[in-house]
Nucleic acid binder design. Structure first.
Length: 201
DNA sequence: AAACGGATTGGCT
DNA sequence: GCCAATCCGTTTC
């Protein structure tokens, strides 16, 4: 069953990042439907988070998407070549977001393999935020799209993880965020093959 | 108008 | 495990 629009309005972005583990992210591009189980996320805590693009209330054409009401996609280009997909959460003008860093392929495996040029048996096919987005065909055309529409959405398939199967560690690649770099706001399913490389606890 | 740097990946050792 | 590739958005002149 599909997550309801109200799910994304929760202002506890760290709790949501953890809760999104096990949910299933779908995309539909033309007549190609693909989906994967979310196995790795990171929380970005709005204007108070030095690692967030919206730190200090920064509003630019790029970050404007994050200021929208929760339940839309925020896609941006990193290092000039990778599309990174975030779920915007909380209410309007509260720019929280959850970065999806890893998915386990579930639907449309052949399409995912074609997009990535490798077999789904390799964890690298969809581990890491750039790879996960590419596996599902997500690019900047998805920026600001509703997660309650027919292009991209998230379903709850009843997958639940025990507390001891979820790891919480510092986030990746944000050393510049100083003291906020150490907050344990990265969550992933322990032992899952589709978790990105820094997978030590 | 131009320079700077990044929420990374993947190919090579 | 290490390190080069790559280019847009932001900042600065």
């Amino acid at each position: 069953m599909r997550l309801k629009p109200g799910y994304y309005l929760n202002d506890d972005v760290v709790g949501l990042a953890k809760d999104l583990l096990g949910k299933v992210l779908y995309t539909k591009i033309g007549d190609e439907i693909t989906a994967g189980v979310i196995v790795e996320t990171e929380a970005y805590f709005g204007i108070k988070d030095k690692a967030s693009h919206a730190y200090g209330g920064r509003r630019t054409n790029r970050t404007e998407t994050m200021y929208g009401a929760g339940g839309i996609a925020y896609v941006y280009l990193c290092y000039g070549m990778h599309n990174l997909f975030n779920v915007v959460t909380s209410v309007e003008n509260d720019p929280h977001a959850v970065l999806i860093r890893g998915i386990e392929p579930l639907v449309g495996i052949e399409i995912i393999e074609k997009r990535r040029g490798m077999s789904y048996t390799k964890g690298a096919i969809s581990a890491g935020p750039g790879s996960a987005a590419k596996a599902l065909g997500i690019d900047r055309a998805f920026n600001a799209k509703s997660l309650s529409g027919d292009d991209i959405w998230i379903e709850d398939h009843g997958i639940r993880y025990n507390e001891e199967d979820i790891a919480a560690t510092p986030r990746v690649g944000i050393a510049y965020a100083k003291e906020h770099a150490l907050l344990p706001w990265r969550f992933f399913v322990k032992g899952n093959k589709y978790v990105s490389k820094p997978n030590k606890v």
